[in-house]
Design a protein around this nucleic acid. Structure first.
Length: 152
DNA sequence: TAGGCCATCTGGTCCT
DNA sequence: AGGACCAGATGGCCTA
């Protein structure tokens, strides 16, 4: 039992080694990047909040705005497909409230990512995993543990 | 300087 | 109607 546990431990270390070799060969730099957003200093933030293109006063709501908005998806855009829909008009206050909710939602998403980062094995000196790296590593890790369970 | 990553805003869609 | 979810756009920061 103890030997089996040690075996799993060693295999886990090998697994992390393999992962570093295969997936993250360049992850030897020290220091994790921790970005801190400053909405107050973000020009985009201020411009967007002052941009009234979506507001009731802009008049866009009255001229079939689905033909006015920029859409990178082109003709495949779901907003353009099928029946025409009237644009949902919201007030500045509602937009700001929606922005706050979206920030909270993204915050909880990042909390979940942080929790997942703590669950997947990495070396301490390794740079903080990005979200996509975390997901991919978790997938491989789960597969690895599943195989380990089936073969013991 | 280019590319990766991230935070934020935004508008569309779905669901309650 | 309004909140949740999603994806696109944008701009800032960091690293090679």
């Amino acid at each position: 039992m103890e030997a089996q546990g040690r075996c799993a431990e060693l295999t886990l270390i090998d697994f992390v080694n393999d992962m570093n070799a295969m997936e993250f060969p360049y992850k030897c730099a020290l220091g994790a990047k921790q970005q801190v957003a400053h909405p107050q200093t973000c020009p985009n933030y201020r411009v967007r909040l002052c941009d009234s293109s979506w507001s009731r006063e802009s008049g866009l709501g009255a001229v079939e705005p689905q033909h006015l908005h920029l859409c990178a998806q082109g003709s495949s855009c779901s907003a353009h497909a099928g029946r025409s829909r009237r644009r949902r008009i919201i007030t500045v206050v509602q937009r700001q409230a929606a922005n706050v909710r979206e920030r909270k939602r993204m915050f909880s998403l990042n909390e979940a990512f942080d929790e997942l980062r703590r669950k997947v094995p990495t070396f301490a000196y390794e740079k903080r995993l990005s979200r996509i790296e975390t997901l991919r590593l978790a997938i491989v890790y789960i597969s690895f543990m599943t195989d380990l369970l089936e073969n013991t």
